[in-house]
């Protein structure tokens, strides 16, 4: 390990301070998250685990700037997410964050290739197609470029989603139950691929899961219960 790598490792990419989230439920306030602080260093892999309703998905949404907290701040790569407006956050997401969802979230009208091209096209990249083809080959779908999501298996759809997430070389990959919709076997394939790509590109990973085995593959595990970090 040389000096530059050490410096990169210790730099904090994502910093959350005092995150709280309260929603109105009827007449009462429902507290989903309270006072959560979390630092994730560049290149680190963190799993957020917890039971259903523990608030882990809400935390992920707030870390991604998809949802707004009622208290606290999130800094991504030095930028205060919630000091930006929604459009500026979108631009930041496009530049720095990749997403993998439980429900894949591929666009049904687009082929596998087009789905992967989409973030590059949105960023105005001229080499979208070449990059997307290469990335799909990397996830083993070189033969499925022209297929629509509905003609792909769940595992294949999630691999397309992985390709789409990594094709922009994000600094941070946020994964929300990435194997939640998959059977054991294709889930395992997708996870292998995810960690392989993560290592290959030196991406920082924050993954929400309730699967302890999966969580244990991450360097650090953050446990949530009733909206608090418990370990």
């Amino acid at each position: 390990m040389d000096a530059t790598q050490t410096i990169a490792k210790t730099r904090t990419l994502l910093r959350a301070r005092g995150i709280g989230k309260t929603v109105k439920s009827g007449a009462e306030d429902l507290v989903i998250l309270r006072d959560i602080s979390l630092d994730v260093s560049a290149g680190e892999a963190v799993a957020i685990v917890g039971a259903s309703g523990s608030g882990k998905s809400t935390l992920l949404a707030i870390l991604a700037g998809l949802d707004t907290p009622t208290a606290g701040t999130v800094e991504l790569d030095g930028a205060d997410l919630f000091a930006l407006d929604e459009d500026a956050r979108a631009v930041l997401r496009g530049r720095a964050i990749g997403f993998v969802f439980q429900s894949f979230q591929l666009l049904p009208a687009l082929t596998a290739l087009e789905n992967v091209m989409l973030p590059l096209e949105l960023a105005g990249r001229g080499d979208a197609e070449r990059e997307a083809r290469a990335m799909l080959a990397r996830v083993g779908l070189a033969a499925r470029l022209g297929h629509y999501p509905k003609h792909l298996s769940g595992g294949e759809q999630q691999r397309v989603a992985l390709a789409r997430a990594f094709v922009v070389r994000p600094k941070l990959l946020l994964a929300d139950e990435p194997t939640g919709s998959l059977d054991t076997e294709s889930g395992a394939t997708v996870i292998e691929l995810l960690f392989e790509l993560n290592r290959g590109y030196g991406t920082t990973l924050v993954m929400v899961t309730h699967d302890e085995a999966l969580a244990s593959r991450c360097a650090r595990i953050v446990r949530l219960a009733a909206g608090r970090i418990v370990g």
């Binding site: 991604a64 998809l66 929604e86 459009d87 979108a90 631009v91 930041l92 997401r93 496009g94 530049r95 997403f99 979230q105 591929l106 666009l107 049904p108 009208a109 989409l118 973030p119 949105l122 960023a123 789409r164 922009v168």
Partner: peptide, 16 residues
């Protein structure tokens, strides 16, 4: 709607 949400997620602004 879903596609647009994904595109928002992937960095598309409202104006875009």
């Amino acid at each position: 709607l879903d596609g647009c949400a994904v595109m928002r997620c992937l960095g598309a602004t409202q104006r875009r």
